[in-house]
C-alpha cells in the first residue's frame, strides 16, 4: 500500500517535470500563434536545430550556460529567416503559411540528418545537476528533473513579466486582441511580428538545449516535440501562455500515468485527450473563441 502511494507520487512528479519540458517548448509556439495566427509547424525543427548547436557548443567549450544561450540564438536566427524569407510574404494567409512551414520542416529535418547523421547525442549537464536527491514521500529523485521544474517556472515568470510589464508585451497583448486596431494606433505591426517570431524561436532553441540535456537528441525528435507541443497548446488553447501551462501539465501527467499503468496504450492517450478537448471545445480549454 505504502509502495503504491509512493509509486503514485513518483509518477505524478514525473508527469509534472515532463510537463515543465513541454511548457518550455510550447510557450514560444503559442506566443507566435497568439499574435500572428501562424501555426508554425517548423517549431520542431527549430527545437532540434537548437539542440544540435547546443551539443556542438558544449563539446567545444564544456560550458552548459553558453550552450543554452547559443542554442537559443541559433533557434532565433533560424526562426527569423523563416519568418522574413517565407512567412512575411503571405501575411494573413494562415493556411498557406502553415503549409509552407511543413515544407520548411521537411527540408530542415533532412539537412540536419545530412549534417549530424542518424546517430543520437546527449548534451552533458553540469555535475551538480547530475544524480539524485532524497525527497519526502517520494524517495530518491533525479536532481535534473527538479531543475527542469525550476526552469519552466522561471521562464513562465519572465514571459509573464514581459507580457504584462513591458511596452513590447503591451503591444503583443493588444495585437492578440485586435491586430487592425494596433496598426491603426500607429504601431509598426510587422516589426512586432519580427520580434515575436525571433522570441518564439529563441525559446524553442533554448528548449532544445535543455531538452537535449534531459533526453537524447536524434532525428525524428523534431516531429515528436512538434506533436506534443501541438497537443499542449491546442488542449490549453492556442495563443494563451497560461493555457500552455495547463495543457502541458495535463499532457505530461497523461503520458506518465499512461506509461506507468498501461504501457501498451499509454502513447495513445495524449492524442485521445486532444481529440476529446477539440471535439467538445474547439478553441481549447483557455482559448478565446476560435
Amino acid at each position: 500500500m505504502e509502495a503504491d502511494i509512493r509509486f503514485f507520487l513518483t509518477v505524478t512528479l514525473n508527469g509534472l517535470t515532463l510537463a515543465a519540458l513541454y511548457f518550455l517548448v510550447a510557450s514560444g509556439f503559442t506566443l507566435v500563434f497568439g499574435l500572428m495566427r501562424v501555426l508554425n509547424l517548423a517549431h520542431g525543427v527549430v527545437y532540434l536545430f537548437g539542440a544540435y548547436v547546443g551539443f556542438n557548443v558544449m563539446e567545444a567549450t564544456e560550458n552548459w550556460a553558453l550552450a543554452i544561450i547559443v542554442g537559443g540564438i541559433a533557434g532565433a536566427v533560424f526562426g527569423l529567416l523563416v519568418h522574413l524569407a517565407i512567412l512575411s510574404w503571405m501575411p494573413g494567409q494562415e493556411l498557406r503559411q502553415t503549409l509552407a512551414t511543413i515544407a520548411v520542416s521537411v527540408i530542415a529535418a533532412d539537412l540536419m540528418i545530412a549534417k549530424w547523421g542518424g546517430l543520437s547525442y546527449q548534451i552533458e549537464i553540469p555535475d551538480i545537476l547530475f544524480g539524485s536527491q532524497t525527497l519526502p514521500f517520494v524517495g530518491r529523485y533525479p536532481i535534473f528533473r527538479l531543475a527542469l521544474l525550476g526552469f519552466a517556472v522561471g521562464v513562465g515568470f519572465l514571459l509573464w513579466l514581459m507580457l504584462n510589464r513591458t511596452r513590447l508585451g503591451m503591444m503583443i497583448r493588444a495585437g492578440v486582441d485586435d491586430r487592425d486596431m494596433l496598426a491603426a494606433m500607429g504601431t509598426n505591426v510587422p516589426a512586432v511580428f519580427v520580434a515575436v517570431a525571433a522570441l518564439g524561436a529563441f525559446l524553442a532553441g533554448v528548449a532544445g538545449v535543455i531538452g537535449g540535456s534531459a533526453l537524447a537528441i536524434s532525428p525524428g525528435e523534431d516531429t515528436r516535440v512538434l506533436l506534443s507541443s501541438l497537443v499542449v497548446v491546442i488542449v490549453g488553447g492556442l495563443g494563451s501562455v497560461g493555457g500552455a501551462a495547463v495543457g502541458a501539465i495535463l499532457v505530461g501527467l497523461a503520458e506518465q500515468f499512461g506509461l506507468a499503468y498501461t504501457p501498451t496504450y499509454g502513447v495513445v492517450y495524449t492524442f485521445a485527450i486532444m481529440v476529446a478537448v477539440l471535439a467538445m471545445r474547439p478553441q481549447g480549454l483557455f482559448g478565446a473563441g476560435a
Binding site: T10, V11, N14, G15, L215, R224
Partner: peptide, 17 residues
C-alpha cells in the same frame, strides 16, 4: 516484464516500476 513502445524518451515512471 515491462514493455515500452519504440521511441519512448522519458523512462522515469517505468524506472519507478
Amino acid at each position: 516484464r515491462l514493455w515500452t513502445p519504440l521511441g519512448t524518451t522519458d523512462f522515469s515512471s517505468l524506472i519507478a516500476r
